[in-house]
Amino acid sequence: MGKRTVTVTGTGRANVAPDVVRLDLRVGHDAPDVAAALSGASAGITAVAAVVREQGVADADLRTLDASVNQRWDNTGVAVGFTAQQRLAVTVRELAAVGRILESAAAAIGNALLVDQVRLDISDRSLGLREARDAAFTDARSKADQYAALSGASLGAVLGVAEGGAAPVGGGLKLAAMARDMAGGMPVEGGDLELSASVTVTWELTRA
């Protein structure tokens, strides 16, 4: 007769304070031909990167995401030129600087600048994930204890552990709307970022 076992999944969460902001910036440029469109988008994103560096962002915190070019048509379906776009990922390590950086970039290239995303994040998730995993295992142990008692048994040795997803979950993030008449332009409030983890654990059941 094989061993009696119980397998349960536990979940845990940890609240951590965001310490970085991830910006996805995009520059678009319209032109009659592909070469001019690409050149214009490249010049624009280069200007944005220069301004961002002037605001104290390190080279390691800048990353080109992608580039594209598409044909444009007017409302009658006639081809009128091309639109090229380039995207730049920026990691801002001073939350209070976000508004200043966006304002400076907009001043450099005007309406060609588009902001695809402003996201609060954590530069090092290791401590938060450790806390979430501890909570997940505790949750699994509590469930297993209950099932063991209902079965007239006790928990024995752990026979297997498998981690599930460990990721940020929604809630607790606050991003104030753009207000050009306010100092800083786009104030960002850190709030809390919640990390979650799950674990599936198998215990041997022993005689109570």
Rank of each mutant, 00 (worst) to 15 (best):
A167E: 08
R100D: 14
A149N: 11
A96Q: 14
V69S: 10
L25C: 04
G184M: 15
R63K: 12
S151C: 06
R93S: 12
L195G: 06
I45M: 01
A144V: 07
A197F: 09
A179H: 11
L173G: 13
P32Q: 11
T200L: 10
P168K: 00
W73S: 14
S126P: 01
G184Y: 15
M186A: 05
E103N: 15
G165R: 14
L195A: 09
G2W: 00
A50I: 02
D145E: 15
S42P: 00
R100E: 15
G77C: 13
A60M: 05
D74C: 07
V115P: 05
D124H: 02
G164S: 10
L175K: 08
A153Q: 09
S68N: 12
A14W: 02
V78C: 01
A107D: 15
G184T: 10
A43V: 09
F82Y: 15
Q71N: 12
A60K: 06
D121M: 04
A58S: 14
G164I: 12
A43T: 09
L88P: 05
R130V: 09
P168L: 02
P18H: 10
G184F: 15
S142C: 04
T11W: 04
G40F: 01
E163P: 08
G99R: 03
V51E: 08
Q146A: 12
A41K: 00
G170H: 02
A132R: 02
G190M: 08
K143A: 09
R72H: 01
V90T: 09
